[in-house]
Measured scan of single mutants.
Amino acid sequence: QVALSRTQVCGILREELFQGDAFHQSDTHIFIIMGASGDLAKKKIYPTIWWLFRDGLLPENTFIVGYARSRLTVADIRKQSEPFFKATPEEKLKLEDFFARNSYVAGQYDDAASYQRLNSHMNALHLGSQANRLFYLALPPTVYEAVTKNIHESCMSQIGWNRIIVEKPFGRDLQSSDRLSNHISSLFREDQIYRIDHYLGKEMVQNLMVLRFANRIFGPIWNRDNIACVILTFKEPFGTEGRGGYFDEFGIIRDVMQNHLLQMLCLVAMEKPASTNSDDVRDEKVKVLKCISEVQANNVVLGQYVGNPDGEGEATKGYLDDPTVPRGSTTATFAAVVLYVENERWDGVPFILRCGKALNERKAEVRLQFHDVAGDIFHQQCKRNELVIRVQPNEAVYTKMMTKKPGMFFNPEESELDLTYGNRYKNVKLPDAYERLILDVFCGSQMHFVRSDELREAWRIFTPLLHQIELEKPKPIPYIYGSRGPTEADELMKRVGFQYEGTYKWVNPHKL
């Protein structure tokens, strides 16, 4: 086992960053958080920038500027975001240094004079007029057009580079997404736009490419001749908990499936790229999406959770019991969808996408189930092999396979070949997804960000279904809070070829 401390991990990262040409360590950078008073800024962006600063992973002359409508001070920003920093008493001095680099400007999102004030403020910072500028839009999409237009007109660096990070949702359907994309691309070049999907920053999602293309053993079996089906799962054990009003506007397909799960599907299904260059990788992902037809209604199961009468606390409440959810809402909190990649490698292999709230566990994984062994000599005792990439929690890679049961006879039983990170790298604290992705933006690497043509294809696949749901308002199937979801989803999976045995229990190697 390799035991690495946080300091050692960050030392390795620093070495990698400083050796590259793309990370300008000594240049002045300004990180501007648009929507600095909001939840995302408070819980994710400010803490992430602090962790990067604490670990010495930001360029040395980096300033952080918050911008929002609320009249706040840096002290206010500190008060609301610091509880999420997880700072230790030993880091007190470092924390003071961090907040000394912070400033805040209040202004409207659609007022040109406010942006001119913001620009004057940035120019007044040390070497601010020639600094590289990175704008993070932690804002609702309704203000994107006004904000990007004003940034472009008043706040661009004339000497350094300018980059803009856009948070999902990128529209509600193909038409609104196209409108937003066309607007942003009329102001910024594609190499300046970073559409963030934080799932692409997760260690195991990034590991998929290495697993596939750096190991000879997987190449020959990664196709329709050997793989019976692919299941991509995202499960949350909690409901909307008072935030249903926002969720109800989008629903589970827009929230998770059309982005996170579809991105994971691309990494499983794509061909080997010409290189690890950002556009070479994204070219292959677009090719996969172009091979997927629009979702067919007979390959869809929609569910909505109801309270568990035997549960406790939140578990007793259904989705419609959330006071922020519109009365009688038919918005799905669970969806199972089957897609097919219609190309030579994957023809006929079902890709089953499942996601839901208020389920029995927290889990995100990719599961490849292989065909049955031909010419069975073990009297149907063999179960199908599976390769599982567990994204969260407890990152893991393992192969479910058959071995001989101890004893006199040739009785096979299920076991696993474990390729888990935790076994080799004991207690290594890896940077989280937002840390990686923000560092990628500083480096100018777009590999783990969504390109406009990729986004367009993703919406093309799901828009007809979303429009049909909005028009017909089908009643989702009720499922109990804390269950596996509607049984109809299991029946759909069985119908397209997935075999669920229920006889195997994964042993978490992190707890051995």
Rank of each mutant, 00 (worst) to 15 (best):
Q380S: 06
E488A: 08
F334C: 07
T324W: 11
E361C: 15
Q381A: 04
T276F: 13
Y500W: 06
G497N: 12
Y434S: 14
V349R: 00
Y434H: 08
L465V: 12
E361I: 10
I377P: 07
K290L: 03
S445A: 11
N343D: 04
L437I: 11
L267E: 02
R390D: 15
A336Y: 05
Y340H: 06
L262R: 01
K404P: 15
R362M: 13
T276A: 10
M270N: 03
G311F: 04
V366S: 01
N411L: 07
P486A: 02
P464R: 07
M493D: 07
V366R: 01
V281G: 03
N394G: 10
E414D: 15
N299W: 05
K285N: 09
A358S: 07
V450Q: 15
T316A: 10
W459Y: 12
P509D: 11
F334W: 04
E344T: 12
K429E: 13
S415C: 05
A433F: 04
K475D: 07
Y340C: 05
V338A: 11
Y434Q: 09
E435K: 03
S483P: 01
L417W: 14
S275F: 08
V441S: 03
Q304A: 04
F442S: 00
P350A: 01
L419T: 08
T324Y: 15
T463E: 14
A489D: 03
A297H: 09
K404V: 15
K317S: 13
G444C: 04
L471Y: 03
N385V: 03
R436H: 14
P273N: 00
N277W: 10
A396L: 14
F410L: 11
F334A: 07
Q468N: 07
P309G: 06
A364I: 09
Q380P: 06
L466E: 06
V325I: 07
E294S: 10
C291G: 10
N427L: 11
Y479P: 00
D372C: 05
V256E: 06
R451Q: 03
L289Y: 04
K357N: 12
Q296G: 09
P509R: 05
T333D: 01
E435Y: 04
M402T: 12
D310E: 12
C443G: 10
Q392S: 11
I477Q: 10
K505P: 15
L339E: 01
Y421S: 14
P350V: 00
I438R: 00
E365K: 01
V496Y: 10
V268Q: 00
V373T: 14
L455K: 03
S293K: 10
N394H: 14
E314T: 10
A374P: 09
S415P: 05
Y340V: 04
P474V: 12
K287E: 10
L455Q: 09
M401R: 03
T487W: 08
R460E: 03
L419C: 12
A458Y: 14
K383E: 14
L302Y: 03
I438K: 00
K511D: 09
F378V: 02
P309E: 09
A433G: 15
L455I: 04
P412Q: 15
E365G: 03
I477A: 15
R362K: 09
V366H: 00
Y421G: 04
S445Q: 14
K272Q: 14
E488Q: 05
F442A: 07
N259F: 15
R436T: 15
M447H: 15
P486L: 08
C291W: 08
Y479M: 01
L339C: 15
A358E: 01
V268K: 02
V295G: 07
T276Q: 09
K363N: 14
K285G: 08
I480K: 14
D418H: 12
T333L: 01
Y434I: 11
C266H: 00
P478V: 05
R390C: 14
H379K: 10
R367S: 10
E284H: 13
Y340Q: 11
P474C: 09
C291H: 07
Y398C: 15
K272M: 12
C291S: 10
E365M: 03
D376I: 07
F378T: 03
K429R: 05
G375D: 13
R345Y: 08
Q392P: 05
E416Y: 12
S329E: 03
T463S: 12
V286I: 10
I469K: 07
S483W: 02
L289C: 07
P464E: 07
Q381R: 08
A332K: 01
L339K: 02
V373R: 02
H467N: 11
T333S: 07
H467Q: 12
F409G: 15
H371I: 12
L455E: 06
D280I: 08
V256S: 08
H260G: 15
S445R: 08
Q369V: 15
D283K: 05
V295M: 11
N308T: 10
V295Q: 03
Q381C: 13
L419R: 03
E501P: 11
K272W: 01
Q263W: 11
R436L: 11
V338Y: 03
L353H: 01
V507W: 12
N343I: 02
A489H: 11
A335K: 01
S445I: 08
Q381D: 10
N298D: 12
G485L: 01
E271S: 08
F442G: 00
R436I: 05
N360Y: 04
L302H: 03
D255H: 15
R354I: 12
L471S: 12
D279R: 10
E344N: 11
A396G: 11
A336E: 12
I469D: 07
R327N: 12
V281I: 11
L430E: 15
Q296C: 11
I480A: 12
